[in-house]
Amino acid sequence: MNHSSNSRQRVLDRIRAAAPDSPARERDYAALERPYTRTGSLTAEARVALMTERLREYDAGVTECASGELPAAIAAALAASGRKTFVAPAGLPSAWLAPGFEWKIDRDLSADQIEGVDGVVTACFCGIADSGTIVLHHAAAEGRRLVSLLPDWHLCILRTSQIVETLPEYFARCTQPPALVTWISGPSATADIEMTRIKGVHGPRFLQVIVVRD
């Protein structure tokens, strides 16, 4: 792509002429002031309560269970959804695959195969209480991006140890910057028509969360 490589030089030259590269760049970056709230102040219990409250404000459903009760809680949530077929990421613990439902394990399922499924169950990387956000890094138990997108119903398993209070606390937990991230704050929504919030445009219309005490 010849014209583009010429333009590369042209654009970079124009930028350098206007803003020359500074030898103090790294020092300048390190010196950037970040006086905003980095760490939260809530007790563990209040943090979980805030996460739950914020999720509910987004119309997400939330239930809580002890660690040992998780398989039963998953089965109960699936049953309550009234849905029958579910997709599971390849790395989802087998104990979570509640019997009595039809499971499709995502080993390179096609979009069409996932599209026909009623719901999906995934783990997550983190929950951010301040904004009621669930973060997926798309590891094996969190699934490819597709599997938590096409089904209309998403059940996400969130452990209390994964819940942080503030967004900066989430970033502090990322020892390495992840390559893929999806931050989910409630079900898909739009307010494009007269600013009326409508739930469920293209992503899952229903988000259900099980908070696991650990």
């Binding site: 914020r54 956000t133 798309h138 893929l180 989910i184 704050s185 079900p187 307010a191």
Partner: peptide, 21 residues
């Protein structure tokens, strides 16, 4: 932008991920 604590979806991707996207 919209008066929300966080918008419903934010996506981040890096180049190409084999098998995903």
């Amino acid at each position: 932008a919209t008066g929300e604590r966080m918008n419903p979806y934010t996506s981040l991707w890096t180049g190409v991920t084999p098998g995903d996207g």
